[in-house]
Amino acid sequence: MSDTTPGTTPGDDGAVPAPRESAGPEVIGVRKGMFGARGGGDTSGYGGLVRTVALPGPSHRPYGSYFDEVADELEGALEEQGLLPSNAIEKTVVDRGELTFHIAREHLVRVASTLRDDPALRFELCTGVSGVHYPGDRGRELHAVYHLRSITHGRTVRLEVCAPDADPHVPSLVSVYPTNDWHEREAYDFFGLVFDGHPALTRIMMPDDWQGFPQRKDYPLGGIPVEYKGAQIPAPDQRRSYS
């Protein structure tokens, strides 16, 4: 963990997304043992097992398929606007036949509007934002994932932006893709991601007075134990589990 997430600048208290180690896979956590048993004696013999959990790391050219063309066009278009592509695009991942651009959050709106407006890119349909919470990814806990689809060219591309828990701000894409209005409200409702520039960022699914952001990993599932004849079965998140 520590070697992939160099400490943030002192005094900032992690309020800026931590710089990304561009070489290897992206480590998001460590898994210990085999059967998820905690707090009791380990009889499985797997208690000493330690595995790092890592998402696929950055890819290198050629990316294959239409990905090189999209990357070239995007980089070229960003350069034309006077923006250094390496500043905006933190890394590019090609995994399982999908292209992902990790974008620095301050450049998200510029990148998205370029992807939408450039005739050679023309990603006119945004299928919303999906929040993901990686508590183990220190300094970059909250990820907002956008999937863009080009009807013109028949392509899809994924944008990923991250923000630290201490400063969960991401620029809103409503000005570029108005369809993201409700999607961003949903991501705010469930993850506490604050989309700066959203016209009315309020809760959408949960009641207005709800406390907390229920789909974050640190928010419990909230189930209750179920009573049967002579036995009580704990809620799914309280049971012993594998992995």
Partner: peptide, 12 residues
């Protein structure tokens, strides 16, 4: 009884 949705959102 809440059924399979034993979670924060559903009245049990």
């Amino acid at each position: 009884s809440g059924g399979m949705f034993n979670n924060y959102a559903i009245v049990q």
